[in-house]
Design a protein around this nucleic acid. Sequence first.
DNA 1: CCCGCCTGTTACACACTCTTACAATTCGTC
DNA 2: GACGAATTGTAAGAGTGTGTAACAGGCGGG
Lengths: 230, 230
Amino acid sequence: MFAAQLDLTSATATGMHNRHGDGSSVAEQRLPSATVRRLIAKEHVFCEGDDREQVFQVEEGVIAVYKTLPDGRRQIIDFAYPGDLIGLGILDEHVLSAQATVPSKVKCLSAAALERIAESDARLALKLYKSVCHELAATRSLLITVGQRSAIERVCAFLVALHRRTAGAESATVDLAMRRSDIADLLGLTIETVSRTLTKLRTMGVIDIAQGGTRVQLCDLARLTDLANE
Amino acid sequence: MFAAQLDLTSATATGMHNRHGDGSSVAEQRLPSATVRRLIAKEHVFCEGDDREQVFQVEEGVIAVYKTLPDGRRQIIDFAYPGDLIGLGILDEHVLSAQATVPSKVKCLSAAALERIAESDARLALKLYKSVCHELAATRSLLITVGQRSAIERVCAFLVALHRRTAGAESATVDLAMRRSDIADLLGLTIETVSRTLTKLRTMGVIDIAQGGTRVQLCDLARLTDLANE
DNA sequence: CCCGCCTGTTACACACTCTTACAATTCGTC
DNA sequence: GACGAATTGTAAGAGTGTGTAACAGGCGGG
């Protein structure tokens, strides 16, 4: 959900200057002032089947976006970090669920208002388009990881992606702001395999694990990238 | 790539009626008249790294959109059927490759022209947005299949999806317009497992295979859907 | 018409990952 | 600071899926 980092404020601001000949005066409307919701760990932002009344922008924490099979198996589609938008779509119902992995904050936006404005504001519509394009790229990348890579390659790819996404280039440390089970459900592995693999990487000297298993130091980023088979 | 079935002609036609205050007269331009390209089986539409000069709309046949790892492993992201758009994105280079699985025809459209028009035409931009949303939904669905389902569930899910996508509700037959290796690379399995699983489904009486393994009759669609764990 | 190539199928041994069970750690509470 | 519950980590057997390889069938070229 990398590109979902659009600045909605500026998008709607420019939208106000557009003029259309198709009679859509709704372009003049501003997005209603957004409210912020605080979430505790494991609390849901929305669930599959809920009315899609709102779209959310992550402000703090991490939100896991996932889908569950009838028998309970869960596939996490993406982790959303601050700046990312979740809940975009074209249906009236959410087709995915979203829950915080750690205490988080999300900005709540009216889905109807956002999409009404986009109908006449090409810039906003294009921003939404590009956001979803980035999200698509991330999902494809995960699909390749899950479809083709081995357990160790998956974990390495995850760590590298997490590093690119959350850490500055200078820092070689990533914060695992989620449980082993979340990582397992993202990568299509089990908790135990994730655990084993992290231990193996530590034994190999590629990473170091601290703070009760939540903080990972990437000792050898080049090796890690290589192991990920990127 | 289901929703990529947008009617570009109408989109650009309505685009001609828009008026914008930001000085973008490019909205007046029409999309250059599209040329049609014929492809033989296995011929590439574009490759990863190619300049993204064109976007393509499938007219006939099936196009496999895929990505390869450095060591040659291949993950097919999606099969594109007539009406689907391929090559959309935000970068100047293609990040994926696309090749025909059977003799096909694609309409070639200028990517630059399409995206230039979208900059001032909210309707076209919104259509692109919705197209990518549908593509995203399909990719997510595949991710769940590959990440969580067993071999037999994957094959069943593939057959059900193919049926929904290509066959009318009345017909219980699907045409496998691709090789076993293509299905394997889509589902994250090996050729052998795909072959074994299809045989198993035939033995179970759920499907029947005809025409040299290219045509599959879904004898028990309910059972098939159940086996897919949808 | 025969031959060779490509694709698809089947068999078997192995490797990987999963399941189960148990140990260790962390966190909340007293 | 200590206890107990919940979560996480580790170890060993079980199962699934994979790779190798051999064989069958279809298609096109010689």
